[in-house]
Lab assay of single mutants.
Amino acid sequence: MGFKLLSKLLVYLTASIMAIASPLAFSVDSSGEYPTVSEIPVGEVRLYQIADGVWSHIATQSFDGAVYPSNGLIVRDGDELLLIDTAWGAKNTAALLAEIEKQIGLPVTRAVSTHFHDDRVGGVDVLRAAGVATYASPSTRRLAEVEGNEIPTHSLEGLSSSGDAVRFGPVELFYPGAAHSTDNLIVYVPSASVLYGGCAIYELSRTSAGNVADADLAEWPTSIERIQQHYPEAQFVIPGHGLPGGLDLLKHTTNVVKAHTNRSVVE
C-alpha cells in the first residue's frame, strides 16, 4: 500500500471513529477524501466538511520552486461564519470567499490569524475590503508590521502568557507558548472536538522541520505538551499544512522538532 493511500485511509478511519463516538456532533463529509496538494491548482481553494458547521479550507501556493498546501478553518456561528487564517495570499483568499459563498452561503463576518507569517495573514486586506472584521493577538499584529505583512485590524486580548485561553464565538483560542513562531495560536472547536494546530503542528508525513527561522526550538516541545494537557479530548487535529489526523500529530511534531534540534547540535 502506497504512503499517500495509507495517509488518506488514516484520515478516513479517524473521521469514521469520530462519527461513531459522537453521532450528534459529527456529520463528516462523505463526498470524498481530504484534498491534497496535487489536486488543488494554485489560485483555487477546496472546502472539506469535518463536522456539522465545521470545515477546513485548503489552498496551495508556490514557494521556492515548489507547491505547498495550506489549511485553515471555518466555523459556523449562528447565521454567520468565523474564518481562521487566510488562504495564503490575496488571490487565494478572494477564491476562498467565493467558494464559501458557493458552498455554504453564509457571510464571513470575523477572521482570526493564528500567527504573523504570510500563509496566515496574506489576504487580510481582501477580507477587510469584503467587510470582514480581522483579528490577531497584539504580538501577531506587531510582528506582521515588522515583517511588512498585512496586519489584522483588531487585537485579541488575554493571550499574552503561555497557557492563556479565551473564548471567541464558537471557538476557544489558546496560546501554548512559542513553537513554530513566538505568537502562534491554537484554535479548538469544543462542539466538535476539532483542534486546529496551525503551523505549530505537523502532518504525519512530514519528517523535516522546514521553516524554523522564527521558531523557538527549545520551547516548542513544552508548548505541545500544554496543548495535549489542555485538549486531551480532541479527536480531529488539523495541521497548518497537509493531512489531518488525531492527537498523534502532536507527538510526531515533537519528535521531528527534537530530531532537528539534535542534528543542529551535532553539526
Rank of each mutant, 00 (worst) to 15 (best):
H57T: 06
V75R: 03
A51M: 14
C199R: 01
L82Q: 05
I17W: 05
E39I: 08
W88L: 00
L5M: 05
A19L: 11
V126Y: 12
P152N: 03
G197Q: 01
T253Y: 01
S16I: 15
V45S: 13
G158S: 14
W88T: 00
L159I: 11
Q49R: 13
S191D: 06
D85E: 09
E172Q: 14
A19Y: 13
S155K: 06
V187E: 01
S191P: 05
N262P: 09
R167M: 06
L73R: 02
T253C: 01
L6I: 09
A111E: 14
T153W: 06
V124N: 11
A19V: 11
I40P: 15
L204E: 07
L97W: 04
K258M: 13
S223C: 03
L13I: 07
S70A: 06
V194G: 01
S162N: 09
E99T: 06
A213K: 13
S62A: 12
F236R: 09
H241M: 00
V132G: 01
V108N: 00
A87K: 00
S139C: 08
D216A: 11
L185H: 00
Y196F: 06
V166W: 09
G105P: 10
F174M: 13
D118R: 10
T93I: 02
A209V: 12
Y196Q: 02
S27N: 05
P170G: 10
Q61L: 09
E203P: 12
L9K: 06
L156Y: 02
V266K: 13
A129P: 03
T253D: 00
T182D: 07
G131F: 15
L204C: 04
G89P: 03
T86D: 00
V75L: 11
I104D: 00
V75S: 03
V37Q: 13
V189M: 05
L247M: 07
I20N: 09
S113G: 10
A90L: 10
G158M: 12
L10H: 08
V124E: 04
V146N: 07
F236G: 07
A178S: 08
S70R: 02
A51P: 03
Q103P: 04
A192V: 07
D64H: 14
T109Q: 14
I100F: 03
N71T: 12
P239N: 00
I201P: 03
S264F: 06
L96T: 03
L82N: 10
E219F: 15
F3V: 06
L173P: 04
V132E: 02
E101W: 13
A200Y: 04
Q228V: 13
E203G: 09
D52E: 08
F26C: 11
K91N: 12
A129R: 10
I100Y: 03
K251Y: 15
H230I: 14
L47V: 10
A129I: 15
G43Q: 11
S56H: 09
A213M: 13
G158I: 06
S30D: 06
S31K: 14
Q228T: 14
P190R: 06
E101H: 15
V37L: 09
G2K: 10
S193T: 08
G169H: 04
G197N: 04
T182G: 11
N211T: 07
G89F: 02
T254P: 04
Q229V: 10
T182L: 09
A15N: 07
L96M: 14
S56Y: 08
P221Q: 08
D183R: 00
T182C: 05
A259M: 11
G131L: 11
S137R: 12
T254R: 10
V132L: 07
A25M: 13
I224C: 01
T182H: 05
D64K: 15
N149H: 11
G242H: 04
S139Q: 10
S16N: 05
K251M: 05
E33V: 07
T254L: 13
A200D: 02
I151F: 15
E172N: 08
V75C: 04
K102D: 12
S22F: 15
E80D: 13
P107W: 05
T86C: 06
A59M: 04
Y231I: 15
I104G: 00
Y34M: 14
Y231C: 04
I50F: 08
V257F: 06
S264L: 10
Y12C: 07
M18T: 05
K258W: 12
S56A: 10
L9F: 11
I17V: 05
Y202W: 06
I58H: 15
L173Q: 00
I201E: 01
A87W: 00
G242C: 03
L159G: 02
Q61I: 14
T114Y: 00
A200I: 09
L13G: 06
T134R: 02
W88Y: 01
H252M: 03
N149S: 09
N184Y: 02
H180T: 01
R206T: 07
A179V: 04
S27K: 07
V28E: 07
N262Q: 05
E101P: 15
D77A: 12
Q229E: 13
N211L: 09
Y48F: 12
N262C: 10
W220P: 00
F236V: 08
P221T: 14
I224M: 13
R110K: 07
I238W: 05
F63Y: 09
H57I: 02
V112A: 05
I201R: 01
Y34C: 11
S161F: 15
S22P: 14
H154K: 10
D183K: 01
A129E: 08
I224S: 01
R141W: 04
W55Q: 01
S38A: 12
E44Q: 11
L81G: 03
G105R: 11
A25L: 08
Y196D: 01
L24F: 08
I84E: 00
K102T: 11
K251H: 12
T93Q: 01
S31A: 13
L156G: 02
W55L: 03
Y175W: 13
G78A: 13
M1R: 05
L83G: 01
A66R: 13
L81C: 05
F63C: 05
V28N: 15
G32I: 14
I104F: 04
D164K: 06
L5N: 13
R110V: 12
I58V: 09
G163D: 09
V112L: 11
L5I: 08
V108C: 03
L13R: 11
Y34N: 06
A133K: 15
P244L: 05
L83N: 00
V212C: 04
Y196R: 00
L81R: 02
E150N: 08
V132M: 08
S16E: 08
A15P: 07
S161W: 14
Y175P: 02
V132N: 04
A25I: 10
V11C: 13
R141E: 04
V126A: 07
A15V: 10
G197I: 00
V11D: 06
L47T: 10
A215R: 05
S38W: 13
T254G: 13
D125K: 15
I74K: 01
S27L: 13
T182S: 07
Y12P: 04
S191E: 08
V256Q: 06
G123K: 03
V28C: 10
L96V: 14
L96Q: 03
R226L: 08
T153A: 12
I151A: 10
R226S: 13
D216M: 12
W220Y: 15
E219W: 08
L185I: 11
A111S: 14
F174V: 04
T140Q: 02
N262H: 13
S205K: 09
R110N: 15
Y135K: 01
M18G: 06
E203S: 06
F174W: 04
T109H: 11
S160G: 13
L47G: 02
G78R: 10
L247A: 10
K91C: 09
S16A: 07
L10Q: 12
T60C: 12
P152A: 14
A59Q: 15
V189A: 08
S223D: 02
